[in-house]
């Protein structure tokens, strides 16, 4: 029977992978999705002087990337504490 810490580590890793998948989904959506695959459709919508698809390709995706990393930092710091694998 695996010991307690081992099970804990497994669950921590599964939660970590879940977090990664969710964040990478949004990473893909804002850049490859909004900026490339559906750029024509989104360009029909306007955001002030920008066509929305063009805005995502040249501005929006970059802002989203920064936000995604900080969400990741916040979420992982909490997960580390929850599973007691954090550093001092």
């Amino acid at each position: 029977m695996p010991s307690q810490p081992k099970i804990n580590t497994k669950r921590y890793w599964r939660k970590n992978l879940q977090t990664l998948l969710i964040l990478l989904f949004f990473w893909f959506l804002v850049s490859f999705g909004f900026g490339i695959l559906w750029v024509e459709e989104l360009n029909q919508i306007r955001l002030g002087g920008f066509k929305l698809g063009f805005w995502f390709a040249q501005q929006g995706s970059i802002y989203a990337f920064v936000v995604l990393i900080f969400i990741y930092v916040y979420r992982m710091n909490r997960l580390d504490k929850e599973f007691d694998v954090n550093e001092e």
Binding site: L24, W27, S31, A57, S61, I62, I69
Partner: peptide, 10 residues
């Protein structure tokens, strides 16, 4: 723009 920034998420 996307290529040289999106890599940082990875």
């Amino acid at each position: 723009l996307m290529g040289w920034t999106g890599g940082y998420v990875l």
